[in-house]
Structure formats: structure tokens, C-alpha cells
Design a protein around this nucleic acid. Structure first.
Length: 570
RNA sequence: UGCCGAAUGGUGUAACGGUAGCACCUACGACUCUGACUCGUAUUGCCUAGGUUCGAAUCCUAGUUCGGCAGCCA
């Protein structure tokens, strides 16, 4: 079978074109995170593109930490990021740090000064801002712009030597203070900053800026295609200027793509940091977070995440993907691999009044309906059972075909029961359902073939083990759903008008976490390892959480099953 | 007011001048000892206006709307 290599997006088209035109011999990409936080699913888009392009065209991808701002960076993030990338299954070629290139970058800066295209500016940050002009008016030249090369060389060397205080001088490129693209108005190349660096310690007191370091390091590493998100589009002329000044035989080419947005999900590192620091979540690995540490803990698989990014596609149009697509990918990835088992998340007691006294039945349950090779297990049944509270309605709604007074349902893999009596406590809460069991209806027996409308999951008192279940919903509410708490405005008829949410905090979903402390699971679930996944029959896919103890296992709902009943009842 | 981009069903993404397709979502149906899965059916789309062409989502012109840019952050 012939598998034709076809470009599946505009970036691949560029790459194909470059290869055809002979601009590059092979393909080299890079993934360049700043180690100032944990990776989130938005980064996975870049990862898939960077590694995907390299792989598709027989090239390689480097991992590079752009650690040029020591005030924000930390080794815990460089370690975390590497672990996340490996977990996803990507294998980088070379591992680099911008900080490993500080010496070479410094030499290049000296070269730019000698060439007369860089100068030391003594203006304050405020003066520089003022003299940069505005979006519509040109900037004005710094009074230091025409210093001699010798003086610039001397000053820059002394900047490096630590002779000047932080912020007192910068090295700037000499480009064009009247450029319509503000980024070209003599951008800063180096700043003076005394701050302990996670790798170089206190060796340097000047640090290169992104617009200087990034393009040059791409070129130095032999990167051919520097793929990044749309906000860098406007930096491209500067990127090209920078590599042109140094003069590389095969300068890298920057191509930009739209970053990932998902409905009801926060995708900004800054905001995620706020959630953690202000205690809205329990940490970077809180399963509600879109970080990879969190998704891993929650039970998502790398396959599901990468499948999602594949379906999202790549383009230059700003877009927001429906979170339902991610859920669909997770369900699909889980469907074949997760063994089925039963858990009663919100139990109500059932007593079988006609069950033979002292009798315990051993029932064989399949672990997966489509994969008999996954085996079976045995569940015990006696006269006291638990079913899901929401599987019973005293006054059944239309189209409700679960348990109700006088109605029959099948217990999955067991018997058909009929509700005869509803027992309530003083407050009216249902405490017990007295039922009769059709002893001839045991699954697999001759009398089992009669049909009843509903099949419920269940647990016997014998097998039920206590656990905690944590159910997650999106971390944000729909934008339209937010009325900002109180009514803030009224229209001319005195009707409430929803005011737009000003802060993403106002959009936080109060139901993003539901903890069910009285949930019950069967032994195979209780005895599982942390990280093991199951489909809790009819309830969703769950993963055993690291908070589990011997006494109380804890389960995260990865994703619920599709449920046409909850939709129908509305 | 400057510069750089982007506009295809509800959402995301294809099409490289020749039948607007795929996935998710939604609705309905079949099947079902999971209201799941699976299968089937259906609704809904080329930003607008001109032009070129036998033929335009695609090429041209003019608009409209949306996003990004004035860090010594990346």
C-alpha cells in the first residue's frame, strides 16, 4: 500500500516547498518553553506541530529552554516540563538551554556593535518608552544613538563586567525609530539584571532579550523551521533582521500558527498561576487544571490528548475548540482499554424481601462486553443491595424506565427485581426500597430472556467497599451564563441586563468539583493501583487518585459517559 | 489614526479554477442485560458588494468584522 506524503496543513506546505526548492537539506524544529510554569494542553499543540513536522519529514526536534529571564524561572519547571513531554511520548533530539549559549550570544552582540548596528543606550526605561513614539507616530532617536563603536564596545563590556546598576543601560539594535512596526524601533537586545539564575547562578548580570536570543539560537542550533504562535507574527521582520545581520548560510524560517483555545477552559499561564496561588485550586496538578500534570493525574491518556490535537488541526485563524471534542477523544481512547466494573456513587439501600434466607449467589461478570479476553470476575449477591439514588423515582417522569414503585428493572448481570415498598425517614428521605426478586431471571439462566426496560448497576452489601469519588466539571462557566453574581444593570423597562464578566475569576464554575464521600465500589476497583482506569458502569470513566489511602480509595471521574436521559428529561 | 494577520454549518478543519467534504455537537431511528458502544438518517455553511471566467470558497477590486503590536517578559 502506498502512503503518499501529503501536506495536511499550511505549515507542512511551506516545509514541502522549502524542501523542493532546496532551501534546506533536512528538517530541524525545536520546542522552546520558558521554564516558568508547567506545560498545559495549549503547549501540546505546539509540541504536536514541532515534533510532528520533524517526524513527518524525516527530521528531528530539539527541546530548548528559553531561560533568559531568571526572575521567573526555576529548575522544578525544567524537570516538570521534561517529564510531561516524555509522558506524551515525544523524544527530543538535542537538549539545549539558552543559558548555555550566553557566551556565544555575548560574542555576537559584540560583533553587532562592531558592525555599527547596535549601541548602548543610557536612557531610562521610561525615557525609552516615551521616545518610542506611538502606534501612529514615529519615535525619536536616543541621544546616545550615535555613540562611537569604541565607546559602545567599552560600555557593553563594562555592562557585562558589572560596573553599572540594574536598569541603568541597555544594548539596543540600531534599526529604524520611524518604522511602522514598533518592534523595529531599536529593540532592546540586552539588559542589566542581577538575579540568581537557575543554571548560571550569578555568573551573568546582563541577560539577552527574546528577540535577540531566540532567532540566533535557532540558527546556531541548525533549526530550519521555527514554529510559534500568532502573537510572534509581528516579530518576524525582527527575527529575519537578526539572523541576516549575523549571516547564516541557511537561515531558519519562522512560521506562525493560531494557539489553542478551548471553551470553558483557562489557557493562560498567568491565570493558571493565579488559580494556584490564590487557592482556587489545590495545585498545578489539581485535576481541574488544563496542565499536563493535572490531566495525567485525572486519568487522561497521552493518546487521547494527541488525538484531540490532531482533530483540532492547524491554521492561522483564531478559534475556540468545543471542550466536548476533548471529551469525545477521551471516551474513544478509553472505550476499548478500560475494564468495566460497578460503583454506586450515591447509594440507596434495597432489601430483597423474598431472597432465600442466608443465601449468597456468586455471579460471573464480564470485564468488557466487547473484549472477552479481558476476562470475568465474580460478584456476590445477598438480600441487601445498593443502587444509584437517581435510578429510582417515586413518581416516575415520562420516559423514565428505571426503578419505580411497582416497576421492574434488571440488575446488571444478576436478577430482575420489582419495587414493592418505599421506606422513608421522618424528613421524607427515602432510606430503603423493599423489592422482590424474580429468582428465575438470573442472568444466563433459562428464565432470563424476558425483557425489562431498564438495567441498573448495583452492589451488594457483601461486596460494597467505601470510597470517595470526585466529579469534575469545566473550570469555567459558559461566557453567556455569567450574570456576574448580582444584577448590575437594568434596561429601560427595568429588566435585569447581564453585565459582562470583567475578571475570569467571576467565571469560575462553582461546581467544578463535587466530592462524593459515601460512594461504594466493588473489590476489583477498591484494590486497584493508583492510576488504574475503569469504566464505572453507566457512570463514566474513572481513575484511582494518588490521594487514595488503604482505608479510603479515591477516584477521579475522567469523563462522564454520554447520557441521552439527562438531556431527554429537560 | 499606523503596521501585521484572519474570515467556510453551532464548533474546529478540508478544498489549491470544476459535485463544498470530514470530525465533534444537535435531532430522530435501529440495536442493547451500560439510556453507553455500534449502526443508520437528518438539519445547518463559503463575511459583504462588485469584477475576471464556460465555471470562483479559491483569482482581482472595494468594503465589513475580528485578533495582535507601543516590556529593560517570553
Amino acid at each position: 500500500m502506498e502512503t503518499e506524503l501529503r501536506a495536511s496543513n499550511f505549515i507542512e506546505e511551506f516545509v514541502e516547498e522549502d524542501l523542493r526548492a532546496g532551501r534546506f537539506e533536512g528538517i530541524k524544529t525545536r520546542f522552546p518553553p520558558e521554564p516558568n510554569g508547567f506545560l498545559h494542553i495549549g503547549h501540546v499543540k505546539a509540541l504536536c506541530i514541532d515534533f510532528g513536522i520533524a517526524d513527518k519529514f524525516g527530521g528531528t526536534c530539539n527541546l530548548r529552554f528559553d531561560d533568559t529571564n531568571p526572575t521567573k524561572e526555576d529548575t522544578v519547571f525544567v524537570e516538570g516540563i521534561q517529564k510531561d513531554i516524555e509522558w506524551l511520548g515525544f523524544r527530543w533530539d538535542q537538549l539545549h538551554f539558552a543559558s548555555d549559549f550566553f557566551g556565544r550570544l555575548y560574542e555576537i552582540a559584540l560583533g553587532l556593535i562592531e558592525k555599527g548596528v547596535a549601541y548602548v543606550d543610557d536612557q531610562s526605561a521610561e525615557e525609552m518608552r516615551l521616545n518610542r513614539g506611538t502606534l501612529t507616530t514615529p519615535g525619536t532617536a536616543s541621544p546616545y544613538r550615535d555613540r562611537s563603536i569604541a565607546e559602545n564596545l567599552d560600555l557593553f563590556r563594562r555592562m557585562k563586567a558589572g560596573e553599572f546598576p540594574d536598569g541603568s543601560r541597555v544594548l539596543r539594535a540600531k534599526i529604524d525609530m520611524a518604522a511602522p512596526n514598533v518592534l523595529m524601533r531599536d529593540p532592546t537586545l540586552y539588559r542589566i539584571l542581577r538575579h540568581h539564575h537557575h543554571k548560571t547562578g550569578d555568573e551573568w548580570c546582563i541577560y539577552p532579550m527574546y528577540d535577540f536570543q531566540h532567532p540566533l539560537q535557532d540558527a546556531l542550533e541548525g533549526v530550519t523551521h521555527s514554529l510559534c504562535s500568532l502573537e510572534y507574527e509581528i516579530h518576524r521582520p525582527l527575527y529575519d533582521w537578526m539572523v541576516a545581520q549575523v549571516g547564516f548560510a541557511h537561515p531558519p524560517r519562522q512560521i506562525e500558527f493560531a494557539r489553542l483555545n478551548i471553551t470553558r477552559t483557562i489557557m493562560s499561564k498567568r491565570y493558571l498561576r493565579r488559580l494556584v496561588e490564590e487557592g482556587y485550586v489545590k495545585g498545578w496538578d489539581d485535576p481541574r487544571m488544563p496542565t499536563l500534570v493535572a490531566m495525567r493525574r485525572r486519568g487522561y491518556t497521552p493518546e487521547a490528548i494527541k488525538d484531540f490535537l490532531g482533530r483540532v488541526g492547524v491554521s492561522k485563524a483564531d478559534s475556540t475548540v468545543d471542550g466536548a471534542l476533548l471529551e469525545a477523544c477521551v471516551r474513544e481512547a478509553m472505550g476499548d482499554i478500560a475494564p468495566r466494573a460497578m460503583a454506586v456513587l450515591n447509594p440507596v439501600k434495597v432489601v430483597l424481601t423474598n431472597w432465600p434466607e442466608g443465601f449468597t449467589d456468586a455471579l460471573t461478570m464480564e470485564n468488557h462486553p466487547d473484549h472477552p479476553e479481558m476476562g470475568t470476575r465474580t460478584l456476590k449477591m445477598g438480600n441487601v443491595l445498593f443502587i444509584e439514588r437517581e435510578d429510582f423515582m417515586e413518581e416516575p417522569a415520562k420516559k423514565f424506565f428505571r426503578l419505580a414503585p411497582g416497576r421492574e428493572v434488571r440488575l446488571k448481570g444478576a436478577y430482575i427485581i420489582r419495587c414493592e415498598e418505599v421506606i422513608k425517614d421522618a424528613s421524607g428521605e427515602i432510606t430503603c426500597l423493599n423489592c422482590t426478586c424474580d429468582m428465575a431471571s438470573r442472568s444466563g439462566s433459562e428464565g432470563a430472556d424476558r425483557k425489562v426496560k431498564g438495567t441498573l448497576h448495583w452492589l451488594s452489601e457483601i461486596d460494597a467497599r467505601a470510597c470517595e469519588a470526585r466529579l469534575y466539571e469545566s473550570i469555567l462557566l459558559d461566557e453567556e451564563a455569567v450574570v456576574d453574581g448580582e444584577i448590575e444593570a437594568t434596561d429601560e423597562f427595568g429588566e435585569a441586563v447581564p453585565a459582562p464578566a470583567k475578571d475570569f475569576i467571576d467565571r469560575l464554575n462553582p461546581n467544578s468539583l463535587t466530592v462524593l464521600k459515601g460512594a461504594l465500589v466493588e473489590p476489583i476497583i477498591a484494590d486497584a493501583q493508583v492510576g488504574d482506569r475503569f469504566q464505572f458502569l453507566r457512570m463514566g470513566y474513572f481513575c484511582k487518585d494518588s490521594d487514595s489511602s488503604e482505608a479510603l480509595p479515591v477516584y477521579n471521574r475522567i469523563v462522564p459517559l454520554k447520557d441521552s436521559w439527562v438531556k431527554a428529561r429537560k
